[in-house]
Design a protein around this nucleic acid. Sequence first.
DNA 1: GCCAACGTTGGC
DNA 2: GCCAACGTTGGC
Length: 159
Amino acid sequence: MARQHWLFKSEPSDFSIDDLERRPNQTAHWDGVRNYQARNLLRDDIKKGDGVLFYHSSTNPTGIVGVCEVARSGYPDHTARDKSSGHYDPRSTEDKPIWYMVDVKLVRKLPEIITLAALKETPGLDNMMVTRRGARLSIQPVTPDEWKIIDKMIKKIVK
DNA sequence: GCCAACGTTGGC
DNA sequence: GCCAACGTTGGC
């Protein structure tokens, strides 16, 4: 299957692009997703090598702050079985894990954020999921066209 | 901090 | 299986 593209949201106070940059090998598991639609994407559709836009939510301003690559396809999210984790879910067992995660590796931290406002103003991105009102899904598909447009925007700010 | 939009829960 | 109530997300 051809390489696919995604947008992952994170609140920077929880896990930021800088946190990822500091990780060994600049790689981290994307744990804590507790939404079935996003879970299905993590478990079934997101594959090693796919491109990921790292998006900071609930901050000022919100927007895309980096590009990553999926380093490992979906596997059970062990934080669901960790009582000390804020993402603990007693329904999840070793035999029947409910929640999944992938590993992401930092490709590039952007020198400046591409804000949500800028995305909304960009022709071709006005229908992108993240620019649509009420789109709360924390793991979103990005179409090849959208990826191409954003890639161009990135090239403009990376010298 | 507000509140709209959305997902989940639970009574029936 | 419907749907109201509730909780959460996330932009502003």
